[in-house]
Amino acid sequence: MSTETLATEEVRSLPLDRGYVFAEGGTGRRINADEAIEWLSRPSSEAPGFLWLHFHDVPTVLSGWPSQLVTLPLGFGDALREGLRSTRIEHVHQNLIAVVNDVDYDVDHKGPPSVATLWLSVSVRCLLSVSSLPPRSVDRLSREVEAGSTFLSPAALLIRLLQEQADVLLGIVRSATQTANEVETALRIGNLPTRSSLGGIRRDLVRLRRLLAPEPAALFRLVNHPPRWMREEDAQSLRQSAEEYSLALRDMAGLQERIQLIEGEIADRVAEHTNQSVWVLTAVTVVALPINLVSGLLGMNIGGIPFRGAQNGFWIVALLSLTLTSLSAWLIFRRRHD
């Protein structure tokens, strides 16, 4: 099939969401699908630089013109078909396959985190990205490119996206740490906050850590054995991103343990207050028991009730009830003191 046929038939069925061609100096300009097809159809010696092509049509991107003009690794197609969402980056036959997630995290916990997944295939000439939802990281990267920022290789674009995700992780850790600090301050001054907010943060941290954190071993393997076409500067930036991810993961793990300790302290305070309330109710019941018992016995309408005919019978019974009540109160409070 000729290039003209591709341009007339498949561009309509698979529109290019956004595309950029980068010159050798690293500056990029926006192109449409026809220009991308024409650039990819030329040999590498006649088309210096590289492309960034972004699509939002996941089901058909593998059967359209990108799969015919761009060499896509087999694992990239499997990741798209299976909808793999956990962050990953791996080296497959001199290509890089990456999954990057963009999170819209609500620090007030009024709703669950919204996650947009971005699947990427990176080669020496082209970075191809596909997403089901419009990720904010793509918009930010597009604005940087259009503002004149230089990217000397497709790997540099991928590293920038990874840095965006690492920044999201650090931002989530900072917001969660601030909430934990506020709860600890409330505990120190004697207030008793609820555990619901901390529980929501801990669940979000567990989910986001599982979803956003790449496998450290795989990432460091890639850092130690990068593709042959990757520039030394890009390998160094990738190594720095791996260290930032490791730092973010350590901070998240430490924050999870800290939140668990705070929740445990709150639970102990709640248990202490509950025990205090139960003790007060028990003490009141026991102290009032002699009066209730005496009044119940003397209230029976049967013969033989003592002091029934005595002139000072009421005061005798009142004195007896008061003595028994005082004795029970003394026993209760003495035991509490012990």
Rank of each mutant, 00 (worst) to 15 (best):
N191W: 01
V107S: 14
R143W: 07
S197M: 12
S121V: 08
G199M: 04
F220W: 14
P154C: 03
G171N: 15
I201V: 10
Q178A: 13
C126W: 00
T150D: 04
D106Y: 00
E184P: 05
E144G: 01
S123L: 03
W119M: 01
Q178E: 15
C126H: 00
Y105M: 06
Q165L: 11
S86L: 06
S114D: 10
A156E: 12
Q178S: 10
D104Q: 15
Q165M: 14
D102M: 09
T87M: 10
G171E: 14
A166E: 00
A156N: 09
L157H: 00
S132P: 00
L141Q: 14
V168C: 03
R143F: 03
A217F: 00
N191C: 02
S197D: 12
R195F: 01
R174G: 02
K110H: 11
V103G: 03
S175C: 07
V92I: 13
G199S: 08
G111H: 14
C126G: 01
V130H: 11
L128W: 09
N181R: 14
A147P: 07
L208S: 07
V206H: 07
R202S: 11
S114F: 06
L170R: 12
R125G: 11
V103E: 03
I159F: 11
T185M: 00
R210K: 13
R195V: 02
R195E: 09
N95V: 02
R203H: 09
F220K: 15
A180F: 03
A156D: 13
V124A: 09
N101V: 02
D108K: 07
H91E: 04
